[in-house]
């Protein structure tokens, strides 16, 4: 089972953080994650000034040259608005820079702004995503490509450069919408399921749907890979973790940091979310290990990625969380899974 962390690169408004300081931090977290034995590091893509990173491949390139082993993924790429040819080129290049560690998690976009920025019509979101995903997958085949769609000029025997190091993995990001899980399964693509709010039971229904749709479409079980992403903090103990995490979580979810679409989480609600079957992975090393193992046994997941810095968490707090995850949680999880 793969364990990792990711950053969405949010910049907390009332902090001294800038895009420059956040990018420094985010690069350092990726390197630290590898040093503490984690398997995957993800960076999000956002297109407003509330976030530091609009181009994750560029930031990953810096991490790639300071690491040897960790996989470099996106959480997620806003494929609905991008040109798949360019996305392919950026990540095939990152794959060469990182010697085969690049990966794309393709998302539809949780925000409206990128559509205006790139001149796409959000009313066509579903069709845009389907078409662009199709082209991206075809480009991975690395043969001269002839292709035609509605949203981009056709390609005739196009040779798209560079060839990736090996297979460039493409995952599909799924929120809570069942039809997205169904489609990911039918395509036989790995699914990155966001467990934001809700319970493990809700995730289970979507994962069962995904696997069944994939099997029915003829994809072998081992290709139907599932990753879970969740808000995350490993503290010294359960109690301390909740105490320390709460103020940052509260402001991270609030409408001020979410372009008007957040809410105010109170302490009891957060505590309920962090309970055994809740979506929030916050606790001491022991609770976090138990919860990941429970997700593994109930959901059969192959990967867990924790959103490790949010709401302006201080750098040292993030570093401690990564260190505890890598040094305490990961060995415990791997030990149980190996026996």
């Amino acid at each position: 089972m793969e364990l990792g962390v990711f950053s969405l690169s949010d910049i907390y408004p009332d902090s001294p953080d800038t895009a420059a300081s956040r990018i420094d931090d985010i690069i350092s977290y990726g390197i630290l994650a590898e040093q503490h034995g984690l398997d995957v590091y993800g960076i999000g893509e956002h297109h407003t000034r509330q976030f530091a990173v609009s181009s994750p491949a560029v930031v990953h390139a810096a991490i790639a040259r300071a690491t040897q082993r960790i996989k470099l993924t996106t959480t997620a790429s806003v494929l609905s608005v991008l040109d798949p040819v360019r996305v392919y080129q950026d990540f095939a290049t990152l794959d060469l820079v990182s010697h085969g560690r690049a990966e794309i998690i393709a998302g539809r976009s949780a925000f409206a702004e990128p559509f205006a920025l790139f001149g796409e019509d959000i009313a066509q979101l579903d069709d845009l995503f389907a078409e662009k995903l199709d082209l991206l997958l075809r480009l991975r085949e690395q043969k001269p490509l002839t292709w035609e769609g509605r949203f981009r000029p056709p390609l005739h025997e196009a040779e798209v450069n560079p060839p990736a190091h090996g297979d460039l993995p493409v995952w599909v990001a799924v929120g809570g919408t069942p039809s997205s899980a169904l489609r990911a399964g039918r395509l036989g693509l790995p699914m990155a399921l966001g467990l934001i709010g809700g319970t493990i039971d809700h995730a289970k229904r979507l994962i069962d749907l995904y696997r069944s749709a994939g099997r029915e479409a003829g994809h072998p079980a081992e290709r139907l890979t599932v990753g879970i992403t969740s808000h995350f903090y490993v503290g010294q103990s359960q109690e301390q973790a909740l105490e320390e995490f709460y103020p940052y979580y509260h402001r991270y979810l609030s409408p001020e940091t979410n372009g008007g679409r957040g809410f105010y989480v109170d302490r009891p609600t957060m505590q309920a979310m962090a309970s055994r079957r809740g979506a929030l992975i916050v606790g001491g090393p022991r609770e976090v290990s138990e919860k990941i193992l429970e997700m593994r046994s109930v959901l059969g997941i192959d990967r867990f990625l924790g959103q490790v810095d949010l709401g302006g968490m201080p750098q040292q707090m993030v570093r401690d969380s990564i260190q505890r995850f890598g040094d305490d949680v990961a060995p415990a999880v791997r030990h149980v899974l190996a026996t």
Partner: peptide, 9 residues
């Protein structure tokens, strides 16, 4: 109708 998610309709 939630413009941050729906865009401007």
């Amino acid at each position: 109708y939630w413009p941050p998610i729906d865009g401007t309709l």
